[in-house]
Amino acid sequence: MTELLQNLLVGSMMLLGAFFALTAAIGVLRLPELYTRMHAASKAGVVGSGLLLLALALFQHDLSTVTRAVAAIVFLLLTAPISAHLLAKAAYGTGYRLWSGSVLDEMGKERTRKGDGQAGSSR
């Protein structure tokens, strides 16, 4: 009985994780510009891979595997947002413009108002 329950849980978690990874990849391909693509990669990607790692932890459920899987998930949660916002900052600094459909850019406004020529002059 517990085996049936475990198999069902692990199987559905695998399917769900794979689904989220697929949506993240579709988002990276389909969204119009860098910043919105980053949304898809950092959120859905983390949840997808995290669910798959959690499925592995539930399937093996011995201590060393569970701790390593939890460590991997925590690591993913820490590094994904850092790399996302480092890339966004680098892209913005090099003058990668917001998508033409964007409605607001308070960062550019702030920079030009303060006379910070570094970001303003490159665009």
Binding site: G17, A18, A21, A24, A25, V28, A41, G45, V46, G48, S49, L52, L53, A72, L76, A80, S83, A84, L87
Partner: peptide, 10 residues
């Protein structure tokens, strides 16, 4: 590339 790495982990 970032996306590739995450999918590969999965």
């Amino acid at each position: 590339l970032d996306m590739l790495v995450m999918v590969a982990m999965g």
